[in-house]
Simulated scan of single mutants.
Amino acid sequence: MPSNNIFIFPFFILNQCLTLLRVGNPDHSFPPSLSDRTQPAPGMESLPEAVLIRILASIPAVDLVLVCRLVCCQWKNLVDGAELWILKCQQEGLTTAESDAENWQNFYFLSKKRKNLIKNPCGEEDLEHWGEVENGGDGWKVEELPGDFGKEFPSEEVHKYFVTSYEWCRKAQLIDLRAEGYWEELMDTTQPKIMVRDWYAGRSDAGCLYELCVKLLSENEDVLAEYKSETVTIPEDNDASWTEISHTFSSYGPGVRFVRFEHGGQDTLFWKGWYGVRVTNSSVTVEP
């Protein structure tokens, strides 16, 4: 069983890394070249590689990439290898026995960053964060679930929804992937899957229409990939149940910098008020 002293090693290693990198650099900037650093850190060369991997796995991921990787060739190879990142994924519950990844370092960072990139997906902040809003008829409205002639949402975490009127209502969000932390090299080479989901429903006493359109855009907002649903028709006297619609973008090519999410609809009876399609719990996620 390893000695308890092993738990103080990560702090020693990190300090050693910083010391090595800052020699001759009082401004703490990284040296332009570390090709001459071919020997492991003093006192560490005798450690078995498996032990060194376990020690390095205790260090924060950003420090591994920006600091430890630059110490010597051995550490660079370990940080660039799969074994270290598989261990970190296992330690932090990011992987299962069935998990497989082409690049485990990217898998780790994408798993840690995974979140819904749509802001205010359920109307808790009224129409905040939604731009390019088209308010046909009486415009968009936010209502509490289940609403008149409606049904509860499948998840108890969702409490509100957006509802449309008797003419087309649309709203959109533009997601800046770089601002969300997805760097250009990752998007251009790894091209992680981009998963889009939305939920819609009608009221049981009125028919309605629904559409979803999602575009992957370049730096200049040129369309590089697009998903557009058919116009979904919900008949009058429907059961008001909630339906999920989803699409996954993959192998979309380099250059994607933005995701534009747009959805909307209207009722088919042209009744004044808010009898059109209901939408909620929209999501855009970058998958590991």
Rank of each mutant, 00 (worst) to 15 (best):
R278H: 09
P154L: 03
N5R: 15
D222I: 10
H159G: 12
D148R: 10
T164M: 00
G43E: 13
N4P: 04
L209M: 07
V232D: 02
I13E: 06
I245D: 08
V62F: 07
W168Q: 03
E49C: 07
K215H: 05
P154M: 04
L216M: 12
L110E: 06
V23G: 10
D188L: 11
M44N: 08
T280E: 05
D148M: 05
E152P: 02
T95G: 03
S229C: 00
D100Q: 15
I55T: 00
S246P: 02
L14K: 14
V232P: 05
M1V: 14
R257V: 09
R69P: 05
T280A: 03
K88P: 02
S58I: 01
V223W: 09
P40Y: 04
A101E: 01
G147T: 13
D188W: 08
E128S: 12
F261Y: 09
V71I: 10
H129P: 05
A206G: 08
V286R: 06
E98T: 14
T96Y: 14
W271Y: 10
K228I: 00
Q105G: 15
V286Y: 09
L177P: 01
T243P: 04
N220M: 03
V163H: 00
K160C: 12
L52S: 14
E221C: 15
V277A: 00
I55K: 01
D198V: 06
E244P: 01
V79N: 02
S246K: 10
I13C: 07
S241N: 14
S241P: 08
P31T: 02
A201I: 11
G93K: 00
K171S: 04
E244R: 01
E157N: 14
I8W: 01
L174Q: 10
K193R: 05
I55D: 05
R54Q: 14
M187W: 06
T285H: 05
F30D: 15
G123L: 07
A97W: 11
